[in-house]
Structures are given as C-alpha cells and as structure tokens.
Design a protein around this nucleic acid. Structure first.
Lengths: 234, 234
DNA sequence: GCTGGGTGTGAACAGTGTTCACTTTCTAAA
DNA sequence: TTTAGAAAGTGAACACTGTTCACACCCAGC
C-alpha cells in the first residue's frame, strides 16, 4: 500500500507484488465483512479477475493467505494498544485506556479478532514442550503481552498495585479477562445491553469501562490478608 | 440412553428414537475428538451404516444436529456448576469451586465449549432489539448466569463483596473473565505453563486457581474510594 | 531469434452439505 | 386379510469447497 517503493526490485518483482497486494486487498475486504466463512479462493479469484489456480502461485494455501491477514491485524492491535501506553496521562488512566483499546479494536474487527485466536486450535493437541516462552515472546502476541507485564510492574513499583502478585501471572490473568469480554461482545450480540431492569441501556463502551474497572480492582493492594494470600499463592 | 422408556410411545416411535440416538451418539463421539471440522454427514452415515440422505429424515440440517450436541453440553456444564454451588462449604470456597468447575468442564471438552460460544456469530449482525433478557433468562446459558448473580448477591449480603457493585454487571464481568481463561487455555496450548522463569511449571489447575483468586479480589470491598467509585460507576 | 522459467489457465479430484425422485417397509384402517 | 398411505431409506445429482497438474503463454537474458 504505502510501501516505500523498493528500488532494488526488478519490474517483474514489482509486478508480482502488485498482484499479491491485490489478492490481499480483496481478501481483506471480504474477510472484514464475512469472515473466513465467506472467503473462498474462487470468489477471490473472481474479484481480481484471475483464475482460482493462479492464486496458488502467490500463496501456498488458503490458510497461508489468511495467516497474513491475521498477522497484519495483530500489528494494528499492538500498535493501537502501544499508542495508548505512550499517551501522557496518569498511570491509572493509561492502564484503563490500554485495556479499553484492546477491546475496542477487537470489537471493531470481530472476524479478525476471532480468527486470530482460533489459529492454534485444540487440533495440535499436546504442543512440543520446551521453548514456549521464547517463541511466544518474539511473536506479536508476545510483544503485546510484554506491554501488559511492564504496566503491572510499573503499578507495583509505584504502589498502586499489590506487589505480592506475580506480574506475569497477573498479566496473563488480565489478558484472559480482556479476551473474554472481547469474545462475548462479539459472539453474543447485545451482551453489554443485556440487563434485567430496562431502566437504562448499557452500551459496549460503558460495560467495557466497568469490566476494566473490575480488572484494575483485582490488582489493588490493601485487601484482607487471608484472601490476598490465597490469591497471590499459586 | 437411560431414558425411562416411555410406554406412551408406539414401537415405531421407539425405533425412530433409537436411530436418532445412534446418530447423536456417533456425532458426540466424533465431535469430542475432532470437533465440528471432523464431523461430516457422510462420515456419520457411514458410522451408523445408513445413507447420508437418511440423516435428513432425523435432523433438518447439520447445524440442527450440532445444536443438539451443544445444548446437551450446556446441560452438563450447568449441572456441574450447580453441583459446586450446592456443596456444603464456606462461601469463599463455594465461589471458588463454582468458577473453577466452569473452567474445568470447558477444558475437558474443548470442542464443545468452543462450539457453544461460536453459535451466535457476528453473522446475525444487529440482533432484533427488545426481549433479549427474557429469551436469555430462559435458556440454559441464562440459568447458569442466574447462578452467578445469586452468588454475587449472597456475597454482598454477607459483606464479603462490595455492595456498591451492581450484581448483574459484576456477574457479567465475572463470566467474561471465566470465558476468557477457558478460551485461552483451549486455544493456546501451554498458556498456563508459559512463564519467563523456568524454575517452576504452572499447571492449568494452578493458574485457574490464581485467576479465580483475581476474580474474587475484584469483588471485595474496602478499596480506596476514588477508585472504587470509578469502577462501580458505569 | 531462441530458450527457459515464471505466469496464468481449464479441467479434474476429492471432499462438503443438501435435495429429490424413487423404492421399500411398515402401519393402520376397511 | 387386504390395501391405501405414510414413513423410512436410497442413489444420483447439484452446487459448492480447497487443491493439483499438465498445458499454453509471455517475457527476460543469452
């Protein structure tokens, strides 16, 4: 799209990238609206006026193509969260903004978000043990997670978060809570509004603020000892 | 299976239910291991020695069949959680047990859990507004949710939970947190074990306990006023 | 100009869910 | 008991899907 037209590449290569880009662009367009279900090789081929088999000269498989969309989405997600971290706000506001952004991006592009987390299905059963953390840390998912860990640690150093909590465990817990809300907001239409008394409607924005508030509460110090110890002790 | 052989039904009807049961049984068997992806009408037909088209005399579509599996799963999930609520334990233990069970059941049958929450996809865009809560409350999902609301209210009445929190909002937040952990545990193999220092491995059980602990923390009273108000105020 | 490798294509394969005309089987009424 | 009709079961087909492969094409480098 706005790539700094590489002068090193040959015309043939540039032409190839042009077609590749067109495929990805069409895929992105379809995927945004209909998700992976509505994305078929034949439809994509039709959309860019090529034969279905031509696409296999550019992508090894449909999965490979979709993976590229997911990767690009992760980039946007991380960038959006990181931007929130860098804003000059109070720590409390920064934390809240960070979590809120995550939810916002997920809800804005529901198909992307869902696909991104359905990649590693239960199909690959028992994963190869060992350098899980290493490969994770280098991925975009891992980088985003690192941001959360740093945020927790900052809070602990300044005393607004309970320093007895393991920052990594806490970050994973926070991630789970965020992920859960994003999933429910996407899958259950009207999840946020769903209330027994109809007196007031609760928007996604409002419920997200509440949920983020609960997440922040869970990190705060000054709780009765008997409970706090049970929680911190894994 | 162990249905109290209804004497009211005709032999034909009983025979029909037998075949229907065989289909569901085969479907359950395949679905448990391979999920919806591995479940095909033709394969199911093969497994019960019928022709593929015969299944359509028992189920309107594949989706209808899978829905029945999901519904049955929800029954087991709710039953399992309800059993935890009824155990004679301290309130704190009861709450923890309840949430933990939810995660356990989800992880035990990952394909069922995932399918159960991918039913209402973003496909049905803007849902018909109105009696959301009513239809929800009557569903099995809704009943399970009601259990959580009651639990929160009990905690508030006995003073262990912050009474300023809206019990319905809190319950939804808790549900989101549970759901998120279940999803991540299923989708990201080794999510619980994933830690930077390899000194100790963290099992699913251990991390679940920690996460549930965080959830309980978020409900507790006695927090600094300025934060608590922000949280309670949606 | 020729040659070779990358580009594009149509046909085909093995799947999928689903439908439909058709036969068989069993049930219930005459 | 015979018979009409509903229910059960079937094979072939339709419209899809992802993917492969032999073939034609076109364009760059010799």
């Amino acid at each position: 799209m706005s790539q700094p037209l590489d002068l090193e590449t040959s015309p043939a290569e540039r032409r190839r990238q042009k077609v590749r880009g067109a495929i990805l662009e069409a895929a992105e367009r379809v995927f945004s609206v209909e998700g992976e279900a509505g994305l078929s090789i034949r439809r994509l081929a039709e959309e860019i006026d090529y034969s279905p088999s031509a696409l296999y000269k550019y992508f090894g498989s449909k999965e490979e193509l979709v993976d590229e969309l997911k990767e690009a989405f992760f980039g946007r997600l991380m960038e959006s969260v990181d931007r929130a971290v860098l804003e000059t706000l109070s720590f409390d506001q920064r934390v809240r903004r960070c979590f809120t952004r995550y939810i916002e991006v997920a809800v804005e592009r529901p198909h992307h978000y869902l696909a991104a987390f359905s990649s590693l299905g239960p199909a690959d059963a028992d994963h190869p043990p060992g350098n899980d953390w290493c490969v994770f840390q280098e991925s975009k998912k891992g980088q985003a997670f690192g941001t959360v860990v740093a945020l927790v640690q900052e809070g602990q150093e300044t005393g607004v978060f309970d320093s007895r909590l393991d920052p990594f465990l806490a970050a994973k817990s926070l991630w789970a809570s965020m992920h859960g809300l994003a999933q429910l907001l996407i899958h259950l239409p009207g999840f946020s509004a769903m209330m027994p008394d109809r007196s007031r409607d609760i928007s996604i924005k409002e419920f997200t603020a509440f949920h983020v508030g609960m997440m922040v509460r869970s990190l705060q110090p000054g709780l009765p000892a008997q409970v706090a110890s049970e929680c911190a002790d894994v």
